[in-house]
Nucleic acid binder design. Structure first.
Lengths: 222, 222
DNA sequence: AGAGTGTTTGACAACATGGTCAAACAATAC
DNA sequence: GTATTGTTTGACCATGTTGTCAAACACTCT
């Protein structure tokens, strides 16, 4: 058994002590870049600046390393969506949700892409966590769902299936990030001034989802 | 040089003649399932019911096989979006677009997932093709863009950035498909009656994008 | 200094996988 | 029939990659 978790004694210089953390971070980057199958332990080792056998010393196998990093990533990623509850008019709640959500994806693009890839591959982790979050009092997901419900009851917004709406909002906030290379080829602004593009996207998503496309005259006869 | 393209002579029984096609289809499935790195030539051979060296006989290398299948897949996938131009009220055009788009993704889920994965990995193919499509008279993309423009000029819909809107529509139509396992964990209908869910999704996407969430009273004071 | 503990290193084994080859096997043309 | 051409097969090689190991190393404690 290794006892490297406890830095009791035999603790080398600070740079050597965090070998495990450096492996972790390197693995995060490489797995995000190359995928589980495409990643090579040698590449992770190189990027961490250590010798390959150390990977096996700290994490037994590639599989275990992957699982460890993935679990940590999932947790951190989901946690990053926690935000102080925002009440008031639904328009404000929606705007705040989009703002926070998009900012988080931008901060954690590696994780977001990785997670989407995992979901595509059928990994149930995110589904389980989200299903739990929707049952958990005070979670951002639950909060949003309740806000939709309240706004509907108050007649603030039209009746709508909450699950579908959540899916639509998330789609609009996430999809363009994971397809970024393609989006950049089609949208000059995304290439030239990415931050401006992201802000414009936030605004657009809110506008379309909240106000819709139809002009008021059109809506009037609907 | 092999001449297997020309079935001139040495054409065996019909089942052996389409060896190449069987490899092709098997490769399509396996690559879509496992990704380029995760896919094993042995698995493709098994699924095609042939011996592994035949893969090298028809396509020299794994790389070449991948490229051949990918190119064919991209082309077919994009072509499948061609549809008779639909004119008339923008609401109808939008509805038809969503309907056609979603149906196509449903028919070609393997290809859709594969394509998204390729885009994530930075493959510029789709971006190039789409960029070209937007410049091509009569392409579905161009048609939609023009429809948006006309509807805006006619005052049928509110002014909006076309590129952003296209992105939003596509996001709403595609994202839930590529995240299907997760969506199914969160949405009972998607699990129990998928076709009904897809139809409901089409309707929801149209409703939200065209009419928006805000009730008319809310819109009135906006 | 010497023992003990945890870490790092280099060399190595085991295996999977992509790729090659020459010989066997049709099928047709002569 | 035999020759020719294209296809299929099984055995094989080369390489890359994961995983193991024992020995070297550093560090602390007595």
């Amino acid at each position: 058994m290794t006892t490297h978790e406890t830095g009791s004694h035999a603790a080398p210089d600070s740079e050597a002590a965090d070998t495990e953390a450096r492996i972790f971070e390197a693995a995060l980057r490489v797995f995000a870049r190359k995928g589980k199958d495409g990643a090579r332990l040698q590449e992770i080792a190189d990027e961490a600046g250590i010798h390959r056998p150390l990977l096996h010393y700290y994490f037994r196998t590639k599989q275990k390393l992957y699982e460890a990093v993935a679990a940590h990533m999932f947790g951190q990623f989901l946690d990053s969506f926690d935000a102080p509850s925002h009440d008031g008019p639904f328009a404000d709640v929606l705007r705040a949700f989009i703002d926070h959500y998009v900012d988080n994806i931008r901060e954690h693009q590696n994780m977001a892409k990785w997670m989407v890839a995992e979901n595509m591959a059928g990994n149930p982790f995110l589904g389980e966590r989200l299903a739990a979050a929707f049952e958990t009092e005070g979670s951002p997901q639950r909060h949003m769902e309740e806000a939709i419900l309240r706004a509907t009851e108050r007649g603030e917004i039209r009746p709508v299936n909450q699950k579908q709406l959540m899916l639509t909002i998330v789609s609009a906030c996430v999809f363009f990030f994971i397809q970024l290379p393609t989006v950049k080829m089609l949208n000059p602004l995304a290439r030239d001034d990415f931050d401006a593009f992201v802000e414009a996207r936030k605004e657009h998503v809110f506008e379309v989802i909240y106000y819709g496309l139809a002009s008021r005259e059109e809506v009037a006869d609907a």
